[in-house]
Design a protein around this nucleic acid. Structure first.
Length: 174
DNA sequence: CTTTCGATGATCT
DNA sequence: GATCATCGAAAGG
């Protein structure tokens, strides 16, 4: 699913764009919040797929995942970056950056630009204000190791649209 | 250009 | 008390 979602358009109240960078997390994955079973924080990851798991990162930022697979599997896809296409003006209001490339280039930036917070934890992505539209054409996707983790760092579960200039990091592949 | 570091709070040990 | 699925400002080359 992490690879599949690259190229899909994700909108929150009409604000968003095409996903260009995702990461997969599984229950039997020491880097995953679901590793070790359900807790108060990760409860949504063990619920039905197609819902949002939003958590506080480093006490400051919010990060958003799409819950995947069957209920109880504890799997999710971290939304790391998207190419802004809808509601640029509202994104710029939420994020005071000179360069549009920094609007949604990173999981914390993406949630801020789209207005996602802990209140959206558990939200059903099949209902308003959310929209998930399939990629018009299959995206060309590169796979690399994940970013910002210290465990299971060897797993190549980060997916980036080839040639995009909207990802959280310039260049590099694996 | 690259590296370092502080912020800030929930979670885990 | 340490760690953390981060970001951005500051410092260094």
């Amino acid at each position: 699913m992490a690879r599949e979602l690259v190229g899909w358009t994700f909108l929150v109240d009409g604000v968003g764009g095409a996903l260009v960078e995702t990461e997969a997390y599984a229950q039997d994955d020491p880097a995953s919040h679901s590793f070790g079973g359900p807790t108060r924080r990760n409860a949504v990851m063990f619920g039905p797929p197609g819902h949002l798991y939003v958590y506080r990162s480093y006490g400051i930022h919010w990060c958003a995942n799409v819950v995947c697979e069957r209920p109880g599997r504890g799997a999710g896809v971290l939304l790391r970056a998207l190419e802004p296409t809808h509601g640029l003006d509202r994104m710029r209001l939420r994020r005071s950056v000179a360069d549009d490339r920094l609007l949604c280039a990173g999981p914390g930036r993406l949630t801020q630009a789209l207005g996602l917070t802990g209140e959206d934890d558990g939200a059903d992505l099949s209902r308003p204000p959310f929209e998930l539209r399939p990629a018009p054409t299959p995206a060309v996707v590169e796979r690399t190791t994940r970013i910002g983790i210290s465990r299971a760092i060897e797993q190549p579960w980060r997916y980036v649209e080839a040639g995009t200039s909207w990802s959280s990091r310039r260049r590099r592949a694996a």
